[in-house]
Simulated scan of single mutants.
Amino acid sequence: MRQHRITGHGGVGLEVFDLGPEDAPPILLIHGWSQHHLSWERQYPLAEEFRLIMPDLRGHGASDKPETPGAFDNSTPWAEDVAAIISALSLERPVLVGWSMGGAVAGDYIKHFGDQAISGFCLVDSFATTGTHMAEEARVARLADDAVVATGMTSSDQAANVSATLAFVRACFHQQPNADDLARMVGFNMLCPPHIRKAARQRNEDYRPYLGKMRVPALVLWGAHDRPAPPMVGQVAAAAIPTAKTLVYEDCGHSPFWEEPDRFNADLTQFARHCFEMEPGT
C-alpha cells in the first residue's frame, strides 16, 4: 500500500492510499460521511487488476481537519479535492465510485469539472439530491430514523457521541458486521470530529442538471434494505443519469460492498472493464 500526502482545496492536506499496479486502470473509491478509506478493505482484491485510489476525505481519517464550516458546507472544497487527487497522481481517466456522501462528493466534482477527465461514474447507495432537494418520501424516512439522523454524532458529549456513532454504524448494514468489525468501524468513524460531521451535512445540492449532461458510462446500485439512503434515493439518481444502469442488492442495506463483497467486486470489475474499453466521447 502506497500512501500520499496531497494538497487539496484551501491547502488542506489529504491522506490518500494507493493499492495495485501504478500503470493499471485507476478506480477512485470515495467513502461516506464520517467514514474512512478502510471502509473499502473488502475491495482490496480488485488491486490485482486495477489501481485503487482511496482517500481519507477532508476532515476524516488521517486527513487535515479544518475548523471552519466553510471547508465542508459547499461543493467547491470537495470537488477541488477530487481534482487535486486526479492531478497529483496523474490518474488517466479514472472511474469514480462514491458511497453515500462520497457519491455527493463525486457529484460535486461533476458539477465543477464535468466528466471529460473520467471513464465512468458509479454511485453506491448515494444521492443525486441532498437536503431540501431530496425526494420527500426519502427525506421523511430518514428523519423518522433516529440512528440515521444521528444527532449525537455532532455532540461534544462524548458518551452521547459514541452511542450515536454505534447506532449509526449498525444502521448502515442489513447484514450486520461481527463484533470485531463493528468495533473497528466505530473506531474509524470516531476519527471524524463532531463539528465536521455537522458541517458536512449542511448541504442542499441538486446534482441532477450536471449528472444529466454526463456521457460516460454510469452505474447506480443500492441495497433494498438501505436506511440512510432509502431505495427512492437510488431511483432518483438513476433517473437523472442518461447512461445509468442499475443494480439492486436485495439482501443488503447501505453497504453492499461490505455485505456482499464478492458480488460487488464482480459487478464493479465488469463495469470498470466496460468503462476502460470505451474511447472518450463514445
Rank of each mutant, 00 (worst) to 15 (best):
R2N: 10
Q3T: 15
T7E: 15
G8H: 13
G8R: 12
G8N: 12
L14A: 12
E15N: 04
V16K: 02
V16T: 09
F17R: 09
D18V: 06
D18C: 11
G20A: 05
E22S: 10
A24G: 13
H31R: 08
G32V: 06
G32K: 03
Q35K: 06
R42W: 03
L46H: 12
L46A: 02
R51L: 00
D56I: 02
A62M: 10
T68I: 03
T68L: 07
G70V: 12
N74R: 10
S75V: 11
T76L: 10
T76M: 07
A79T: 02
E80D: 14
V82A: 00
V82N: 00
A84M: 04
I86R: 02
A88P: 04
A88V: 05
R93N: 09
R93F: 02
G98P: 05
W99T: 11
S100G: 14
A106F: 02
G107P: 10
Y109R: 04
D115K: 01
Q116N: 08
Q116T: 13
Q116E: 12
A117S: 15
A117H: 10
A117R: 14
G120D: 02
F121Y: 13
C122T: 09
L123A: 09
F127M: 13
F127A: 11
F127W: 11
E136W: 08
R139A: 15
R142Y: 02
L143Q: 15
A144M: 09
A144W: 06
V149Q: 04
A150F: 13
A150L: 13
G152Y: 01
T154C: 06
T154H: 01
T154I: 05
D157V: 04
Q158Y: 09
A159R: 14
N161C: 01
L166F: 10
A167S: 15
A167C: 09
V169K: 08
V169S: 08
R170G: 11
R170A: 12
H174Y: 15
P177V: 04
L182V: 03
M185Y: 10
M185L: 13
N189H: 15
N189A: 11
M190Q: 06
P194S: 09
A199M: 07
R201F: 00
P209I: 12
P209W: 08
K213A: 14
R215G: 10
V216N: 01
V220E: 00
W222T: 00
A224K: 14
A224N: 15
D226Y: 00
A229Y: 03
M232S: 11
G234I: 11
V236L: 07
A237F: 04
A237M: 01
A237E: 03
A239D: 12
I241K: 08
I241E: 00
P242Y: 02
P242N: 14
T246L: 06
T246W: 05
P256W: 12
W258M: 01
E260W: 08
P261C: 06
D262V: 15
D262I: 12
R263D: 03
F264K: 01
F264M: 05
H274Q: 10
H274F: 02
E277W: 00
M278E: 03
G281Q: 14
T282W: 03
